[in-house]
Each structure stands twice: as C-alpha cells, then as structure tokens.
Amino acid sequence: MHPKRRQRLTYLLVIMLGVSIAIGFVLYALRQNINVYYTPSQIIQGQAPKNHTFRLGGLVKQGSVMHAKTELEVAFIVTDLVHNINVSYNGILPDLFRDGQGVVVQGQLTAQNEFRASQVLAKHDEKYMPPIVKDALAQAKNSTV
C-alpha cells in the first residue's frame, strides 16, 4: 500500500477507535437509563426508584389475571420466574395481553410488592407462525406430558 494511503487509513482507524471507546463508555454509564424497564428481581433488590414513575417488565403469571365484575379494574402478577410483583391497573389492555405474555407496565410502587400501573404495553416476541402450526405444537406438547 502506498505510504500516504497507509497513513490516512491509520489516522481514520485511530479516530474511529477513539470515538467508539468514548461512545462505549457513555452507553455503559447510561445503561440503567437506556433499559426500558426493571425486572421484578431488580425491584426486590431495591434497584428501582422509590416514589418515582418507572416501568416494570416481565411475564403475566399464568392464571393470575383477575378482572373486576363491573369496571375496567384488573389485577395480575408480573413475574420473571424468580420473583413476583402484584400489579393493579384501571384501563383498556392491549390486544396481545394474556396469560404468559410479556408485558411492560408503567407506574409506581405503592408498597413492597404492590405496583399501581398507569399504562400497560404488551411485548411481542420474535416468533411468527400460522395458527395450524401453533395447534400442532400444543398437541405434541400435550401428548408427551
């Protein structure tokens, strides 16, 4: 390679490396602000801000959803399969909300394990399949159990 070009390439690589490291440090320092939600385990460990609005993420525990008879009030448990947080919410739930679904809820802690939500978002996973395949999978699972 021509020495002039080698020199220019070296300059560029050094600049890129420097900027990458700088951005890496910034992102590392901000990691908790970049995370969109806290997991139940983090809340139990006391990492979540108290008396502040934040988001909690996890799975809706199977069979934990309880609807009120006459109003939109709903209560359910968000779990990361290690710890549970009880969530209460008054409002319309997204279409994908169901047992076992990943959710991100925004709100505040009212007590140790009690979370009052002002917004409930459903988290979709990266899996796409036709209903027939889903039924076949469920059947296969049932027959092996």
């Binding site: 970049i34 969109v36 739930l93 997204p94 279409d95 994908l96 917004q119 409930v120 978002l121 459903a122 988290k123 979709h124």
Partner: peptide
C-alpha cells in the same frame, strides 16, 4: 399502536 399499545417508546 395496536400490538404494544403505544405509537412510540424511547427504547434503545
């Protein structure tokens, strides 16, 4: 909007 329940969220 229909799937998550929001148009926008400041996630990474």
């Amino acid at each position: 909007k229909p799937m998550w329940g929001t148009w926008w969220i400041w996630d990474a």
